[in-house]
Amino acid sequence: MRILHTSDWHLGRQLHRVALLKEQRAFLEHLLDTVRREQVEAVAVAGDVFDRAIPPLDAIDLFNWVLGELADLQVPLVMISGNHDSPRRLGVNARLIERAGIHLRTSVQDCVRPAVLNDEHGPVAFYGLPYLEPGLVQDHFAAEKPSHHAVLSAAMEQVRSDLATRPDGTRSVVLAHAFVTGAEPSASERDITAGGVPSVGSSVFAGVDYVALGHLHRCQRISDRIRYSGSPLAYSFSEADHPKAVWLIDLDADSHVSARKILCPVPRRMRQLTGLLNDLLTHPEYTGYEDCWLHITLTDPDRPHMAMERLQQRFRHALKLSFSQEQRTQEESYRARVNGRTDHEITLGFLHHVTGLPATVPEQDLLQEGLESVRTEAAVREAS
């Protein structure tokens, strides 16, 4: 079976207040062209379909359009919700649209309800593990503690148990939205830290043929059978040099996996420039950057008057402006204070700074409970 693995569309997202729907539609048109050209038999979308729980209407329209196009092509789609999505909103009418070959998996109950697709070699069971907020799903899975490792391990145990009941020769694909140990993050992903440990080991996914991951925005390989497709567009300047891609996965009759990376279109280059204001405004060496999305860092000893306005006369897509002297002072000071520290440690340090006294053990425990409670309540609000 030929599978197109993609994720992290973040429909409705902006880049420094610039709408990206035009660029996102260009990617989805590229995806549809790839499906046709490569004779794709199934599309797997590993979460973060939208950028926020309540997406703008034009993002919903774009989503409905691409679902309709895939349905017209009669290519099945398997999709899970990510940590940016509202599971209940994304899963509206899931049972109904499944008749059109669109398989949405957005709830914990869905984890052991595979979408079983068939090719000339037999069945392939697609298990969708939506983003699992540990504090919300611990009881459902009877996990030992509210951690990503515990709840994903429990979910995968259920997947393996269900797979064991399937006919011999059934191949398996798992879609999951998580931070797997050894992968490289970017600056544009939302933190999913819970209980201090946001990542899970790749061994959690043992026993299945291919794992299509979402959440991290860099296209990367964890192993031959475990991969991130990454986001189709760069959503932060930290991704300026990351090639954006999707994975074309071939799963043969013997469950062997072969993978080919297909690069996504680049609607506008993203670059970072550093220099003196006058040099950037006058030197011809910067001509090639005039149509790029830019983060510009000025090295002038004093902050120039109306710097951004002047820069945008030449670089109309300049989006972010920094000043090296101020940035260096602020970053060095803040980095020294928080480098290597968890959220819990940072808040304990703030409490000590305000009160002049270190927190007692009960206060430390109470603060940890508060941090985890806030994360859980935020997840509940997004899910509702």
Rank of each mutant, 00 (worst) to 15 (best):
L31C: 08
L73S: 03
E377V: 12
P87R: 04
E41R: 14
L263M: 13
S236L: 11
Q313L: 14
R52I: 04
W65R: 10
W247Y: 10
A359G: 11
L28W: 00
Q158T: 00
P304M: 08
D302G: 02
R89A: 09
P130D: 05
R95G: 11
L20T: 11
D85S: 04
D224R: 12
L31P: 04
P301S: 10
L276Y: 13
A336M: 13
G288F: 02
S86Y: 09
H10W: 04
A164F: 06
L67N: 08
E345F: 11
R171I: 12
D61P: 01
E189L: 09
V112K: 07
V173D: 00
S161Y: 06
P123Y: 09
A378S: 13
A359H: 09
K145D: 13
D139Q: 14
V374H: 10
R160F: 05
V180C: 07
T6S: 04
G356H: 07
P114R: 05
V137Y: 01
M156P: 11
A59E: 05
A259N: 08
V380T: 09
R36T: 13
V108P: 10
P301R: 10
L70A: 02
Y210K: 09
L73K: 07
Y210V: 06
L371V: 08
E382V: 02
V173G: 01
D365P: 00
T165I: 03
A183C: 10
E345D: 14
R52D: 00
Y289D: 09
T274F: 01
T355I: 10
Y127V: 02
V43Y: 02
L73H: 05
P87V: 01
R269T: 07
V174C: 06
Q313F: 01
S324N: 12
L57C: 05
H305W: 10
D119H: 05
T6E: 00
Y228W: 12
P265I: 08
T299Q: 09
L251C: 03
P362Y: 03
M79N: 02
I97F: 03
T274E: 14
Y286S: 02
A142I: 01
A206E: 15
K320H: 14
R52Q: 12
A150W: 06
R260A: 08
P185R: 07
V374R: 12
S188F: 05
L366G: 14
G91N: 06
G214M: 04
D51I: 05
M79E: 01
D250L: 00
N93H: 14
L117Y: 10
S188Y: 04
D51H: 12
T347Y: 14
R316K: 15
A71M: 08
E332G: 04
R316I: 08
S161Q: 15
G196D: 03
G201M: 08
V200C: 13
C264N: 07
G195M: 03
L129I: 15
H121A: 14
A253N: 08
Y228N: 01
V246R: 04
